[in-house]
Design a protein around this nucleic acid. Structure first.
Lengths: 179, 179
DNA sequence: TTGAGAAGTCAACAGCCGTTGGCATACCGT
DNA sequence: ACGGTATGCCAACGGCTGTTGACTTCTCAA
C-alpha cells in the first residue's frame, strides 16, 4: 500500500535528517511516488510528521517487578525497544528544532513515562521529579548514542551499558531524596 | 563593532531556532545590518556558525579535588557554567540535525571532557567509556532542561539537581566497572 | 582637499521548498 | 460495457533561502 510506503520513507527521512531537512520531495522519491501523493494522503508536512511520529513507548507493566530490580528492568527494556528502531532519534532530532515536536515529546513523557513511574514510586508527590531524572539519563543515552554518535557511547555494548545505567535509574526511582 | 553584533545575534538565533531555521536574513535584522554584511564578515553561513559556536567548556582543573568529591565538583560546575548561557542548547539543537554540528560536539567532548576525565580516572583504558557515560547524563540534563523543557526538569532547582546527579557522575568516574 | 579603503545598501540570481490543480490511467462493482 | 473512484504523474505557483556584485556613503590619513 502506498500510504504505508510513504510512512516508512517519512520515518527514515525524519530520523536521518530531522524535520526541516527532511523534504517531502525526498520522502516521495524514497517511496517512489510523486510529491503530490504525499499531500493527498496526509494534507501537509506537519500532519505527515504527526502521523509518522505517532508512537507508543510500549512501556511494560512494571508493577510485577521486584522493587530492587526496577532499574535493570527499565533500562533493559529501553534497549530492546529502541536499539534498531529509528523512531526515537527521529523524534529527538525534530523536537530539538521544532516546537510542536518538543510539545509532542513532553506529552509522551507525561502520559507514558510519567504514569508508569508513578505506579512504582513510593511517594506519589515525587513521581514527576523522579520520572524527569530517569528521562534525563535515558534520553541522554539516546542522544549521545543514536543522534550525536559519540564514539565511546556507540562502541559500548547494550549489555555493558545496562550494568552501568541500571543502578542510576534504580536510584532515581527508589532511593530516598538525597537532600 | 558590527562583527561582534553579528556574532551576538547569531548565537541567539542559533540557540532559539537551530541551524536550519536560523536564517542569515533574521540574524542580520537582529544586528540591524544588511544580510550581505554577514557574508562579507564570515564568508558563509556554515562559517558563521563555526565561529559563533566556537566554544570552550572551560572545565576547571579537577586534579586538586578529592577523589570522592569529583561528582559534586563536576555537576556543580556544569550548572554555574551553563545555567543562563544559551550556547550549549544552540550547539545541541544544531548538532541534532547538522552533521558538521554533530562532528563539532564529538570533537569538543573528545578534546575537552575526555581529556579532563582522563586525568582523574584510575585506569586510563577506561577513560573514554567513563567520559561517555558522564556526557550521557549531563547532556541528557541539558537536553531535557534547556531544549525539550520537560516541566519536572525545568522546575527543579539547580541545587536539588546537583544532589541527585552528583552520585551518578561520581560513580561513572570512580566506581569499579560493575561487570 | 583629496583620494584610498572600509562600511554599508540595494537589487537580483539561482535553487529549493511546500503546496495546488489539472489531467491521465488503472481498477472494480454493477 | 460502463461509470465511478482510487491512484498516479506533471507542471506550475509563490515564497523563502544563501549568496553575489555593483553601487553609495562614511572615515580619515596625506
Amino acid at each position: 500500500m502506498t500510504r504505508a510506503a510513504i510512512l516508512r520513507a517519512a520515518r527514515d527521512r525524519f530520523a536521518a535528517d530531522g524535520y526541516d531537512r527532511a523534504t517531502i520531495r525526498a520522502i516521495a522519491a524514497d517511496a517512489r511516488i510523486d510529491p503530490s501523493m504525499v499531500m493527498r494522503y496526509f494534507g501537509s508536512k506537519e500532519n505527515l510528521f504527526a502521523t509518522a511520529a505517532e508512537f507508543d513507548l510500549r512501556l511494560p507493566d512494571l508493577s510485577g517487578v521486584p522493587a530492587d530490580r526496577l532499574g535493570t528492568a527499565l533500562v533493559s527494556y529501553f534497549f530492546t525497544r529502541w536499539e534498531g528502531d529509528s523512531t526515537l532519534p527521529a523524534l529527538l532530532r525534530t523536537a530539538s528544532t521544532n516546537p510542536s515536536g518538543a510539545e509532542r515529546v513532553r506529552a509522551i513523557f507525561a502520559t507514558q513515562l510519567g504514569v508508569a513511574v508513578g505506579r512504582v514510586v513510593a511517594d506519589p508527590d515525587e513521581a514527576p521529579r523522579r520520572a524527569g531524572l530517569v528521562a534525563s539519563q535515558l534520553l541522554g543515552v539516546a542522544l549521545t548514542r543514536y543522534v550525536l554518535r559519540l564514539p565511546p557511547m556507540v562502541d559500548i555494548s547494550p549489555a555493558e551499558l545496562i550494568t552501568w545505567l541500571a543502578p542510576t535509574v534504580q536510584r532515581y526511582l527508589r532511593d530516598p531524596d538525597p537532600r
